[in-house]
Design a protein around this nucleic acid. Structure first.
Length: 273
DNA sequence: ACAATATCCTGCGAGC
DNA sequence: TGCTCGCAGGATATTG
């Protein structure tokens, strides 16, 4: 569920609450969420480690721990990572509870159980394929207009597929892909190699605009998403196309829904070309 | 090299 | 009210 702006918001809300905390114990209610090592080793190795930093890479959350361990979490569609009080009632779908000091708990909750949790030695990402092959951070300075242009022209694919490909650009999912293409005035089925310099410049600006706007509104809570404090985001109010199929675009024409890259894709046939 | 499809899983809204 | 169906923001393996 959460894309770059949502994961960034979770990161920012968790950071002040968990950095410096020691993980005294982990309670595992559903071990299938732990991808490596096995649940027994996971709980054994993590016990007594201190959380030193919280960072984000694409849609992954990275917790660097003492003694060179790294806890890596992907929320996938419905994952939630929240800080709770020990006495807060446990959600039906809470799979992992990290016990911190003074009754504070970091809880991983995931209705659909698609989330993924890893514990590795720092920087040992080879076993986490999606993280290991991740493309550049779209909001970092190394993601230049030239980088985007080279990537677009080096691929024989369509724009929607390209934007969802995490190995090309990290962190864009279905909602922001559609909003970015609308903001850039580009159709999802456009071939990336055919895009002109002008269009690529519009796409580049739209990527920054929409991701930054998403972060500023603390993410999109279309269904399940909440931040580290359990609070909803506000960007769903600002969506121009996603979830608005059949409604009118601001230009007056009806928004169209198609399936592209295997996902529902909404666009305006008049504003996007 | 790329696209489409199935898969993991639960909940929800629509339609009957 | 209760049922069945289709759909959901992700990543990945498999098939074409």
């Amino acid at each position: 569920m959460p894309e770059l702006p949502e994961v960034e918001t979770v990161k920012r809300t968790l950071e002040p609450l968990v950095v410096g905390e020691e993980i005294f114990q982990v309670r595992v209610y559903y071990s299938g969420i732990i991808k490596c090592p096995n649940a027994e080793e996971f709980t054994e190795y993590i016990k007594g480690r201190r959380i030193e930093t919280v960072t984000r890479r694409g849609k992954y959350l990275l917790f660097s721990l003492s003694a060179d361990w790294e806890l890596i979490i992907h929320l996938r569609m419905t994952g939630r990572l929240t800080v709770n009080k020990g006495e807060d009632p446990l959600d039906k779908h809470t799979h992992l509870v990290f016990e911190l000091s003074a009754g504070k708990e970091l809880r991983f909750t995931d209705i659909r159980k698609f989330g993924m949790v890893y514990l590795v030695k720092s920087g040992c990402w080879e076993r986490i394929h999606g993280l290991f092959t991740l493309g550049p951070e779209p909001l970092a300075s190394e993601f230049t207009l030239k980088v985007l242009k080279d990537k677009l022209h080096g691929k024989k694919t369509r724009l929607k597929n390209f934007l969802l490909d995490q190995s090309q650009i990290a962190g864009i999912g279905n909602i922001y892909a559609d909003e970015i293409m609308f903001a850039a005035g580009l159709l999802p089925q456009r071939k990336t190699e055919d895009l002109t310099d002008r269009e690529i410049a519009r796409l580049y600006s739209a990527i920054h605009l929409k991701l930054e706007e998403g972060i500023r509104h603390r993410g999109t809570s279309f269904r399940d998403y909440v931040d580290g404090k359990g609070e909803k985001g506000g960007f769903q109010e600002k969506l121009k196309v996603y979830g608005r199929s059949g409604q009118n675009c601001s230009c007056g024409s009806a928004l169209i829904s198609i399936v592209a890259a295997g996902r529902t894709t909404v666009y305006c046939p008049k504003c996007q070309g």
